[in-house]
Design a binder for these strands. Structure first.
Length: 587
RNA sequence: GGGGUGGUAGUUCAGUUGGUUAGAACGCCGGCCUGUCACGCCGGAGGCCGCGGGUUCGAGUCCCGUCCACCCCGCCA
């Protein structure tokens, strides 16, 4: 039977008591973590958010009979005196392990069904069960710690932006669908038959409008919604730290975000070196085979076309002559790599869709071997090893063909090798700004250009005259922030000039009529004195997952959804009443 | 949309070439126990083998379909 709280007031949390409190009368409120019933004497670990404290029911205690009823996860209040534990019974694993509470009065505030999985230890439980009983999973140490850190990070972020003069401004959740980019979540209007609101993919247009409204510096920790297929690092709703600044150029944004990240990292006791490295998109693609390079393992991809320009190896010579590439990277300390492991890499390359992987190695004794020794000849194999600085005991992995495809393949292999060899150290933090993204990308299927970032992204000044001549070569004032191979943010300087915006729309094949239909309110607003402005959005869930070394953002979201976008606890989505559908003009 | 891994007790798992009564650990319930802290000891209960078909004398095991969870590709301006 549950008892009332009455006048019972907590004096300390379950993580607070120390030897200095010995002798004081305290009241603890919390959950029964574990019971150890020794017959005569009975120990209970009482748990709350802050920790665990052992309370004791001594032999002959008036409350003993009641204490015998206690089971895991009962909610209790205990009143009693703090006493020091004898030297042999101190528990060094608990912060409160030097003391215990001798219970004088026990209140059972609530009973509890036996939980489907243990709360008191962090033994693994299937994610399906954890998500079904998320409220219990949230009681366990892992999520308590994760959600706690998340709070400290968001508190740090808010404090930082306030100190920098940013205003936190809310933007609409019910907004207008703009069918560029990701699929929208739609909300039917009851008042307007057949019309819909969309949930924001991001507050992009609103934050830009706030700049022309003179708000100068905007920040919002806001939920965004995208109806796309999910991944370990993608949920249908996720949280962005959304930032926009008037009169900004890229370095203005970097100058705000780098100290922010330093503050964030300091929460977990890490000091960051600044400024962060900056790398053009073209370099990231060429040297790491990705637009989000993980700089921890080294092993840059090198261009070795020169070796084959006049080689007798026709396959590579023809590829180079035809505008293709030959690239490779050196795996250090691979002397121990067995022949079967090397063959495994060749298979792996095939599985990744590569046309082929060539290897060459210099043995510990200097002996040179290669998968193409016969075809290429020892002289060119040696030149290849020399050109890439492949030392004794090292192996060079080479791919040839179309430049992007070859680099992407090598980039994937590089990461797989790094992962297997433990070269991705969880306590190394490699930040890099990837800059100078292409403004546009060619959509071969639709036979037209698409905005790589979004259609409001400003081109780089020097490339303005490329827009009509060679649009594919124009670079954007866009940047991504990458941490350890994860994109944790992206942004751009925006177009603030209606004329330039019109040119971009025309490049994207958007007619003035279409543009006005989709973003008319925004384009009209631009005409009333828009300052140059730009911003960034940081992926808060991803940042926190990285800090905690969690491989899925579900571990840092209190109530996440499954890969099929289902909330297993609440049971969403669900069918609705026919009457509701009728009101919404959907039935 | 495509590919992969898994689904057996409340939980985490084992389960032989298809063969008799489907096991273990933890948890749970009962008993004993005065210094435990993953307390210990003794005893007990607990199963739609994800679901639906099929093959077979016989299916947890083989085949087909389907659902769920996770990972990856496509997708995510």
């Amino acid at each position: 039977m549950a008892e009332q709280l009455g006048e019972l007031s907590r004096t300390h949390t379950c993580g607070a008591l120390r030897p200095g409190d010995v002798g004081t009368e305290v009241v603890l409120l919390g959950w029964v973590h574990r019971v150890r019933d020794l017959g005569g004497v009975l120990f209970v670990d009482v748990r709350d958010r802050e920790g665990v404290t052992q309370v004791v029911f001594d032999a002959g205690a008036a409350t003993m009979a009641k204490a015998k009823r206690l089971r895991s996860e009962f909610v209790v209040g205990v009143a009693g005196a703090v006493r020091r534990r004898s030297a042999e019974t101190v528990n060094p694993k608990l912060d409160t392990g030097e003391v215990e509470v001798a219970v004088r009065e026990l209140t059972i505030l609530n009973e509890a069904k036996t939980p489907p999985f243990p709360i008191a230890d962090d033994t693994p439980v299937s994610e399906e069960v954890r998500l079904r009983y998320r409220y219990l999973d949230l009681r366990r140490g892992r999520l308590q710690a994760n959600i706690g850190l998340r709070h400290r990070i968001t508190a740090t972020i808010r404090r930082y932006f306030d100190a920098q003069g940013f205003w936190d401004i809310e933007t609409p959740i019910l907004t207008k669908s703009t069918p560029e980019g990701a699929r929208d979540y739609l909300v039917p209007s009851r008042v307007h038959a057949g019309e819909f609101y969309a949930l924001p993919q991001s507050p992009q247009l609103f934050k830009q409008i706030l700049m022309l409204s003179g708000m100068d510096r905007y920040v919002q920790i806001c939920r965004c919604f995208r109806d796309e297929d999910l991944r370990a690092d993608r949920q249908p709703e996720f949280t962005q730290v959304d930032v926009e600044m008037a009169f900004a150029r890229p370095t203005t944004i970097f100058g705000v975000i780098e100290p922010l990240m330093a503050e964030v990292m300091s929460v977990i006791g890490v000091t960051l070196a600044r400024p962060f490295r900056r790398m053009p998109y073209s370099e990231a693609m060429a040297v790491y085979g990705t637009d989000k390079p993980d700089l921890r393992p080294g092993m840059p991809i090198q261009d070795i076309r020169e070796v084959f320009r006049a080689s007798s190896f026709r396959v590579f010579r023809d590829i180079v002559a035809g505008g293709g590439t030959v690239r490779g990277f050196v795996v250090p300390d691979s002397g121990a790599t067995s022949r079967s492991e090397v063959d495994g890499l060749v298979d792996e390359a095939k599985a990744l869709g590569g046309s082929g992987l060539v290897w060459a190695r210099r043995g510990e004794d200097g002996t040179i071997t290669s998968s193409v020794m016969k075809a290429v000849g020892e002289a060119d194999v040696t030149r290849m090893l020399d050109a890439t600085g492949t030392g004794q005991g090292q192996i060079l992995l080479v791919a040839a063909g179309e430049p992007d495809a070859a680099s992407k393949l090598l980039g994937q292999l590089r990461l797989n090798i790094a992962r297997r060899r433990g070269m991705l150290k969880a306590d190394h933090w490699e930040f890099v700004w990837v800059v100078d993204f292409p403004l546009l990308e060619w959509d071969a299927e639709a036979r037209r250009y698409l905005a790589m970032h979004h259609p409001f992204t400003s081109p780089v000044d020097e490339d303005l005259d490329l827009l009509e001549r060679e649009p594919g070569r124009a670079r954007a004032k866009a940047y991504d922030l990458v941490l350890n191979g994860t994109e944790i943010g992206g942004g751009s300087i925006r177009i603030h000039d209606a004329g330039l915006q019109a040119r971009i729309f025309s490049l994207l094949g958007i007619t003035p009529e279409e543009a006005s239909l989709r973003f008319g309110f925004f384009l009209e607003a631009l005409e009333y004195g828009t300052p140059p402005h730009g911003g960034i959005a940081l992926g808060l869930d991803r940042i926190i997952a990285l800090l905690l070394n969690e491989s899925s953002i579900r571990e840092v979201i209190a109530f996440p959804k499954t890969a099929a976008a289902v909330d297993l606890m609440a049971g969403a989505p669900s069918a609705v009443d026919r009457r509701q559908l009728k009101e919404l003009h959907l039935a």
